[in-house]
């Protein structure tokens, strides 16, 4: 299932979660990690990824550091303290949403079902 509209709404959560697990990452690395984790089922478009990273940085959730790699510049992103807090809240928000979605799609499912 590779639906861009479904991914769009959770892109920020995906980025924050990956950075929580990986300390610091750069754009290409994020796209590859998502591809790897989903066995190529989900592909993050670069046109959506970079603006999302810049937005999270402007909101103070991500910090950046620039490193020189083979005569070029690489921008690494990592979570700030506010970003760390945001991961927890975004994750529970998303989990709650998926749980409710499950209830709608499969009404027989028992309340309190956790994904």
């Amino acid at each position: 299932m590779s639906n861009n509209n479904l991914i769009k709404g959770s892109l920020q959560t995906i980025i924050l979660k990956l950075l929580e697990e990986n300390e610091r990452m750069y754009g290409y690395e994020i796209t590859q990690r998502v591809k790897e984790l989903t066995a190529g089922e989900i592909k993050i478009t670069e046109g959506a990824l970079y603006p999302a990273l810049h937005k999270l940085e402007a909101e103070g959730l991500l910090s950046t550091d620039i490193q020189q790699v083979d005569n070029r510049v690489r921008k690494y992103y990592s979570l700030t303290n506010d970003g760390q807090k945001e991961v927890t809240s975004k994750m529970s928000e998303l989990q709650g949403f998926v749980e409710n979605l499950q209830r709608i799609l499969t009404p027989d499912l028992k309340p309190g079902f956790n994904i």
Partner: peptide
């Protein structure tokens, strides 16, 4: 410059 450098790095790494 910031956009140029980020895209350039993406091309190179790929």
């Amino acid at each position: 410059t910031e956009v140029y450098e980020e895209i350039f790095d993406h091309y190179c790494t790929t």
